[in-house]
Design a protein around this nucleic acid. Structure first.
Lengths: 307, 307
DNA sequence: AACGTATGTAACTGGTCGAGATCCATCGTT
DNA sequence: AACGATGGATCTCGACCAGTTACATACGTT
């Protein structure tokens, strides 16, 4: 059964004529007759009485007309709902990110996004390191924030921001006032290192020359914990500058660049290239790019949310 | 948009696979892909995300799936309603008949019909003589009861019963005890004749030999009025035997056959040959035929009404 | 790395739907 | 009553579309 047939049927009902319906349906009269014939065959009942020149609905026809109306109405509603989804995005986006990103990056991005798309629910999948990439790959999350580089070819990467990983020390520490520090200067210090992840890998590489003479007193996996431990004088650590900006500005903590060259940490937004994004998703990419000072892929921002 | 497409779509949603849906839809997988492609084209939105081997509904797809369910549900409901109409007829039948038939024939027929089809509403179009035929011809009435013969070729005729038109007199009248009467014996009597109609035409023909010497004192168009007038001694009249049975049996009225041969009045059920009758209509024909002692056209009576 | 699974793509083909012409019945008009 | 006009049914033909078959491609698993 074709919805065209239903439309034709209702046009006939409305105009009480096959020929007139043929005009409004942009078909010839035989085509209309054929459609109805097929429809009657399908419901196995006559829908019209053919009374020479006049036609009239049968009882079954009257009943069927009601349903046909409802069905076409639902069809229209469905199209409206889909169009509305494009115009005023809603639904949900699942964003995977590690804890630090959740704390230091997402709040700003989310608040910008929510202004534009108040009807989209943002769900945070707070996971760790490569689990973020996996979640995006498995389509369990729509977006992920992760440290770059990411090697997956299927993922699109948008660099969000660049951070420098610095030595983190209490403001009172002798090294705190230094402009930069070499790895061999840390051999006598208690070190608090992140337990795992890309930053830890970078640090391992940087510390490798003095690897054997280090005092790694703790491995932690929370930036907040590390900051408090450092503040309490339990040791030195390393941290992305943006993650400890408040502590430094408050004069409690100090950061020192690493030598011979700064350790750079790049944060990126990743998503599947083959993802079929709605306006809600495209808008998210746009907002992230904007907050990174990049030009967006398309002008999705003109989609003003209204409600 | 085809309902098949919707069904396919929902099968894919249910089975989460194009190929599996192909099996349950008795199509090949490319056919399924094509259907969905066309559907997506029509709603102008991707309904699935193609993630290599896996597929997943998009937001729009989830919304559309709801509507598709509802639409197919309505389709099923419509078929059920139509089937139910066949199984337990309902709706209405319009029956055209003149007053006498309404009084002396319909009550019995209707009560028989209502026992079988309690959900069918019987509407009486009480009209006169040939208006009955016209009403049926114009499809303003589904059935008509009228005096036979009817010459319309488009009408199907079922003879319902045969009546004899007799002279109607008060029981005390000299002619009341006669076995039969000739027209010339009525020249001295006051006559009350039906105003018009087939019976009047028949009587005119019978009275024609003595036409000029008759005293036609009144022309009435109600059998009840004629009976009362005759009873009151205002004159003699003519009436179908079955229309005055009670009065005769009560000993108040007498009927006398006409000479040289009885005047026969045949009552028939008429309906358009091209009428697309539902079970309700076929059942009515059956009931009328049964009450006339005829074999029906089909065994519609097995349709027991249940509610 | 190779295989199995799953979707997309590309010709081919058969069925179907619509156009056009014709037929038939009815209805209104002269 | 005969006529033309109207409206629906039927037939044939042609074009298009949907479906099959076969092949390509991508992903996940052994």
């Amino acid at each position: 059964m074709d919805l065209d047939q239903l439309h034709t049927f209702l046009e006939i009902v409305r105009l009480k004529s096959f020929s007139k319906a043929a005009l409004t349906c942009y078909r010839t009269q035989p085509a209309i007759s054929a459609q109805i014939r097929q429809l009657e065959l399908e419901v196995n009942t006559a829908l019209f009485e053919r009374l020479g020149t006049r036609i009239q609905l049968t009882q079954a026809g009257r009943i069927f007309a009601d349903y046909a109306e409802k069905i076409l109405d639902l069809r229209r509603q469905s199209q409206n709902a889909i169009n509305e989804l494009e115009r005023v995005p809603r639904g949900e986006l699942i964003i995977a990110a590690n804890e630090a990103t959740c704390i230091y990056v997402l709040p700003r991005v989310f608040s910008g996004y929510k202004k534009l798309f108040p009807n989209v629910q943002l769900l945070v999948d707070r996971s760790y390191g490569k689990h973020v990439v996996e979640a995006v790959m498995d389509n369990l999350a729509d977006f992920g924030f992760t440290q770059l580089p990411v090697q997956e070819k299927k993922l699109q990467v948008v660099q969000v921001h660049t951070d420098e990983i610095k030595l983190l020390a209490p403001a009172s520490h002798p090294l705190a006032s230094r402009a930069s520090v070499r790895c061999d200067e840390l051999t006598g210090e208690q070190l608090l290192l992140p337990k795992s992840g890309a930053t830890r890998a970078k640090l391992n590489a940087w510390l490798e020359p003095v690897e054997d003479s280090l005092h790694i007193s703790m491995e932690l996996d929370s930036t907040e914990m590390i900051k408090r431990f450092v503040l309490a004088g339990l040791g030195l650590s390393f941290m992305a500058a943006s993650h400890c900006k408040e502590g430094v500005e408050a004069g409690e903590l100090a950061t020192v660049s690493l030598e011979p060259e700064p350790l750079i940490r790049k944060l990126g937004l990743v998503y599947r290239k083959d993802k079929a994004f709605s306006k809600a998703g495209l808008g998210f990419i746009q907002v992230v790019m904007d907050s990174a000072g990049l030009a967006g892929p398309a002008s999705v921002l003109h989609t003003e949310a209204e409600e």
